[in-house]
Nucleic acid binder design. Structure first.
Lengths: 238, 238
DNA sequence: AATATTTACTTGTAAATACAAGTTTGTTTG
DNA sequence: CAAACAAACTTGTATTTACAAGTAAATATT
């Protein structure tokens, strides 16, 4: 009999360890308890524990070394909008602020969209919003988001000021990010983008078009992000 | 007793299936043989087969569906220099050419390097080269590569014209790419870069600084890539 | 004929067991 | 004291067994 819900044990252990690593219970470079120790601690068998550790290694939370143990690595992303990380986490998330330019509204999708949409997505309409992200009061990202209006009641009413969109989707709708794809370009910004990012004429802008997959079948998050990479550069793992 | 070398069975099966998928034995959308069938075919047990399939799913070659089977996906990258993929694979790799600007030479590392180097790397010196990548005769990437001169005999003598650097490292030195990290910026190109990419003044350029990890302990590949994203955009999964 | 239901698949989860192989830490030996 | 060895760890690989859960097709029912 499973104690509690029908969440697999290996998944549970994965979440526990992931949380511990994220919260700093284990520092970078630390050794995780050995597999056998984890077995004893959580009452599982080694194959189950190993499944959890394999997933953690995959997601970049640990590095395994035969004969040595599992070494903790710093978490890879978790920076709000951009899963491309680094600059922000290097500075600590303290100075990161979000200003909403266009509040979430429900409206039809643009005719020409950056990604191909399913029939269901087109029919559902999209939740649209524009946000500006500032680091130490300096605008860094301008983010235009599109979400298909599927199984997300009352989402336009929610606050997006302080919490990241991902956190809200996770806490209120149990939506988890699974991965995604992106197109990256260097562009000359439009006057509008230039003014939001407070750029001088001629300064280039990094443009990301992303399609983010979730655990909800058919639910994707889309965003078009303009970055001022003059002072900071976007960082990512692959 | 192991038949042949000391390569694990699950790794062997992984390589076999990966090759089959890459070579088109299975088309996109096809179902792989079921796990039990693979057991019979290759004389392994299900956990071993599952380990192979888990790795394939991880690397984006298949998508698993409970009750259904393992569905083949198109390979994710494998595009020569850039693991950021898409544009090239969409066009087929036929039109991709490489022109060597600076042949591989052994020299000391730059004093100020884009990533922190280990003591061993600094002492070993670096293999330096510059290459231009063209798509349909139009220059797209300008790639400056740095490799620590560790366990790579005769590498400066090898041909890089037609084969990708990764392929050479793989075939001659058994070096496998494990992952990496990158910084991305939009910049105004220098006159030199602008002339190589045949750009007009004012056109922005995408700049990637990458550190690529390998299976060889302590061996990293570094590259600084300048991309003309005017016509094509760099594509990547995460 | 259309709809349930059963059946035979598929992958997912989990245990118990065994040995191989790399790493560290002692202990013994010279 | 220093080097060589041995023991006690660690993770890696692999088999065997069992049942759960999702999917699809064949079958029985209405």
């Amino acid at each position: 009999m499973n104690s509690g819900a029908s969440i697999p044990q290996h998944r549970k252990l994965y979440e526990i360890l992931r949380k511990h690593i994220s919260e700093g219970v284990y520092a970078e470079g630390d050794l995780l308890p050995s597999e056998n120790e984890l077995c004893r601690l959580y009452g599982m068998t080694r194959p189950t524990v190993r499944q959890s550790l394999a997933a953690l290694a995959n997601d970049g939370y640990i590095r395994k070394h035969q004969g040595k143990g599992s070494i903790v690595q710093l978490p890879p992303m978790d920076i709000g909008i951009l899963s491309v990380s680094g600059t922000t986490s290097a500075l600590g998330n303290r100075n990161l602020k979000t200003r909403i330019i266009v509040k979430p509204v429900l409206k039809p999708w643009p005719e020409e969209f950056m990604f191909n949409l399913t029939k269901l997505e087109r029919e559902s309409g999209c939740i649209y919003m524009e946000r500006l992200r500032l680091l130490d009061e300096a605008p860094i990202f301008y983010d235009i988001s599109y979400i298909a209006n599927i199984n997300l009641p009352r989402i336009t009413a929610r606050q997006f000021e302080n919490k990241s969109l991902f956190v809200i989707l996770r806490e209120h709708y149990q939506v988890e990010i699974k991965g995604g794809e992106q197109r990256i370009r260097a562009i000359s910004p439009s006057a509008r983008i230039r003014s939001f990012l407070m750029l001088e004429a001629g300064q280039p802008v990094l443009h990301l078009e992303r399609r983010i997959m979730t655990n909800m079948e058919g639910l994707f998050l889309y965003s078009s992000i303009f970055c001022n990479t003059g002072k900071y550069s976007v960082f990512g793992r692959f």
